[in-house]
Computed example of a mutant assay.
Amino acid sequence: MAQFLGRRVLVAIPVLFGVVVLVFLILRLIPGDPAQIVLMGTNASPARVAQVRHQMGLDRSWIAQFGIYVGGLLRGDLGYSYVSHGTVAAQIGSRLPSTLVLAGSALAVALVVGIPTGVVGGLWPGSIGDRLATGFSVLGLAVPYFWLAQLLILLFAVRLQWLPALGVGGPQALVLPALSLGLGFAAIITRMLRSALIDVYQQPYVIVARSKGLSSWQLLSRHAFRNAISAVTTIIGLQIGNLLAGAVATEVIFGRPGIGNYLVSQIQLKDIPSIQGIVLFIAVCYIVINILVDVSHGLLDPRVRKAWTA
C-alpha cells in the first residue's frame, strides 16, 4: 500500500509541476502589462504601476520570478489580490465550505439516484425498468446542467414557488443547485453501473454461484455489485472533479458565494493573481482526487491490490 502510494505521488509530481508552469505563464503571456491589467480602471499613475510591477516581481527575470512563485506556493502563498486587497488563499478558504457543501450534496443526489437506477437496469435488462433507466441516462447526459438549472428555477421557484431560486439560506436553498448539478452525474453512474452489472452477470463465477442456488439478492450483494461498483469507482472519482468545474456555472446561476462564483467575478475584474490561485487550487484537487480513486479502486478489487505488490 505504501509503495503504491509512493509511486502515485511520484507520478503526480511532474503533472503538478506542469500545472504550476502553465499557471505561472498565464500572467506572463497575456497581451499587455500585467501590472496595468491588475490596476485597470483605477487611473493609476506610472509610479503606482511601477510599484505594482515591483510588488509582483515583474521587474526581475522570468527564472527569478518563477523561483519566487514556487517558493510562495511551498509556503501556502497563492498570491495577493489587488482587487480584493487580501491573500488569495484566504479568499478561497472563506468560500470553499460553500462549494464543498454544494459538491457534496450533488454527489449525494447522484449516488442516491444513479446507483438504484443502474442496479435496476443491470438486473433486468430489457425490462420496463431497464428502459426507464436507459431513458433517464440518455436524457441526463443530453441535457446541460446549466439549462436544467434554469428549468428547475422556472418550475419550482417561479411557477410553484416551493423552493428559493437564489442565495444560501437553509437546506431548501440547496435543493435546486444540488439537483441541477447531480442529476447529470447520476445519469453517468446509471449508464456505467448498468453496463458493469450486465457484464458481471455473464461471468463464469456468477453462473456457478447461481447454479448453487443463491438468490438474486445474494448474487448481487456477495458477488455482482462489489465487482461492478469497483469498475464504476474510477468514473465516480473523475466526476467528483467535474463537480468542482460544474459548480462554477451553478453557483453563478443560483447566486451561491462559492469558489466558482468567485472565479467568475475575478475574471470579470481581471484579477489575474486570484485567477491563477483558483485554477491551481482546482488542479491540485483533481490530482488528489485521482490518487484517492486509485487507492479506493485497489481496496475494492483484490486484483488491483495484487498488482500493487507485483
Results as ranks from 00 to 15, higher is better:
Phe4Val: 04
Leu5Ser: 07
Val11Ser: 11
Val15Tyr: 07
Val20Met: 14
Leu27Arg: 11
Ala35Thr: 01
Ala35His: 08
Arg53Phe: 11
Trp62Asn: 15
Trp62Glu: 13
Gly72Val: 00
Leu73Gly: 01
Leu78Gly: 00
Leu78His: 03
Thr87Trp: 09
Ala90Thr: 05
Ile92Asp: 01
Gly93Met: 02
Leu96Phe: 13
Pro97Val: 01
Leu102Pro: 10
Ser105Phe: 11
Val113Met: 03
Pro116Thr: 09
Pro116Val: 07
Val119Ile: 15
Val120Gln: 04
Ser137Val: 12
Gly140Ser: 05
Tyr145Phe: 15
Tyr145Asp: 15
Trp147Gln: 04
Phe156Arg: 07
Gln161Pro: 01
Leu163Gly: 05
Pro164Ser: 02
Gly170Pro: 05
Ala173Glu: 08
Ser180Phe: 09
Phe185Pro: 00
Phe185Ser: 11
Ser195Lys: 13
Asp199Lys: 06
Gln202Glu: 14
Arg210Ile: 05
Gly213Asn: 06
Leu219Ile: 11
Arg222Met: 13
His223Trp: 14
Ala224Met: 01
Phe225His: 07
Ala228Ser: 15
Ser230Glu: 10
Val232Glu: 09
Ile235Phe: 10
Gln239Arg: 12
Ile240Asp: 05
Ile240Gly: 05
Leu243Thr: 13
Gly246Cys: 09
Gly246Ile: 08
Ala249Pro: 10
Thr250Pro: 15
Gly255Ala: 15
Pro257Gln: 04
Gly260Asp: 13
Gln266Leu: 01
Leu269Asn: 15
Pro273His: 04
Ser274Gln: 12
Ser274Leu: 10
Ala283Asp: 02
Val284Gly: 05
Cys285His: 05
Ile287Gln: 01
Leu292Arg: 07
Asp301Ala: 13
Arg303Thr: 04
